[in-house]
């Protein structure tokens, strides 16, 4: 293809700039998590970033493609770090990086060609393969930095955290629902804890909306649908169903709304398709959280909707200019 034809001018946009702005939007959330974990999260962050970048470089080399510092591998690494518990052992961090970059991305042809969100695909493998480890979400300030690092590096033989792990709201809720003895409202106090994190995600996300890097439809429709879906059952049977606020104020909800479902490669491209995809994702999240065996349904929901995206796109094509009627 010759590039000697019009247009000769080009706007300021680049893939690299886009990716780095998304990374920048994640910085507030990471900062909050650094505070929560007393700095321990920096270890899996560095580990995952280094692994993803190295694997990206190797894959591009093997595929005889030029190395581009387009930021996409780094973004995958950061999303993975945000999804995994801070005290995930190093080998699982590396394994998820391998699955995300090699299996979910480059085996399909690399950037732009992957049908599934690499971070979510890797997260799903981890949650299915190591559900115990993946349940070890710590509440803020629960452990000292050194303790956490020892666990990550496998130096601490303790089978960690039985007491602490279930303290996160979703795990607690899951337990409660299965034992059928606790009122969901009892978790109101645990809600307060990740509020800073939720705000950080929303802040970064809204900045991306404003910068027109992500479409406003996806977060709005996702959050609104989840809210509406959760309201009716909770209103009828508040003892059996968690409140809509609980759904909305969960960090993973915000992460999905602004940073996961908005992935352009694996999502829908048409305006109507984006709305439909976000609404269906909310439905699946609510179903899994309310009735499923896993504490959180975000990753499964995203992957299921990744399956549907091409089909939705195909049937939501807009009418071209002048062909409206």
């Amino acid at each position: 293809m010759s590039t000697t034809h019009s247009p000769y001018a080009h706007g300021p946009a680049s893939v690299r700039a886009t990716m780095f702005r998304v990374l920048a939007a994640l910085v507030p959330a990471l900062a909050v998590l650094v505070w929560y974990s007393q700095g321990a999260i920096l270890l899996p962050l560095v580990l995952s970033s280094a692994a993803c970048l190295a694997l990206e470089a190797v894959c591009l080399k093997l595929r005889a493609r030029p190395w581009r510092n387009d930021g996409s591998a780094l973004l995958t690494a950061w999303l993975l770090t945000l999804c995994l518990p801070v005290v995930t052992p190093w080998w699982l961090v590396l394994t998820t990086a391998l699955i995300a970059i090699v299996f979910a991305k480059h085996l399909y042809g690399g950037l732009g060609q992957n049908p599934f969100n690499p971070a979510m695909a890797a997260f799903c493998v981890a949650i299915v393969a190591a559900p115990g480890i993946m349940a070890q979400h710590l509440p803020p300030h629960a452990m000292s930095t050194l303790e956490q690092i020892r666990i990550i590096l496998g130096l601490d033989a303790r089978e960690v955290l039985d007491g602490i792990a279930s303290a996160t709201p979703l795990n607690a809720l899951s337990n409660a629902l299965h034992h059928d003895d606790t009122h969901a409202a009892d978790f109101a106090d645990t809600l307060a804890t990740p509020l800073a994190l939720i705000c950080a995600y929303a802040l970064g996300g809204l900045w991306l909306v404003r910068a027109r890097i992500i479409d406003w439809r996806t977060p709005l429709v996702f959050l609104a649908t989840l809210f509406l879906l959760a309201t009716l059952p909770w209103w009828i049977a508040p003892a059996r169903y968690p409140s809509p606020l609980f759904h909305l104020l969960h960090p993973s909800t915000m992460l999905a709304a602004f940073f996961i479902l908005t992935d352009p490669v694996t999502g829908c491209t048409t305006a109507r398709g984006k709305c439909l995809l976000a609404a269906c994702a909310a439905l699946i999240v609510w179903l899994i959280r309310s009735h499923g065996a896993y504490p959180d349904g975000i990753a499964f929901s995203v992957l299921l909707m990744n399956f549907c995206a091409p089909f939705i796109d195909l049937h939501t094509q807009p009418k071209a200019f002048g062909h409206e009627r």
Binding site: A13, V15, T18, R68, D70, S72, G110, L111, G112, Q113, D215, P264, V265, T269, T270, Q317, P318, K319, A320, F321
Partner: peptide, 19 residues
Amino acid sequence: PSPCIRCTACAQACPQRLQ
């Protein structure tokens, strides 16, 4: 050029409402 990431910036810019 690098691979298309389906960001749909082009669809938003298209005056003919194409994809």
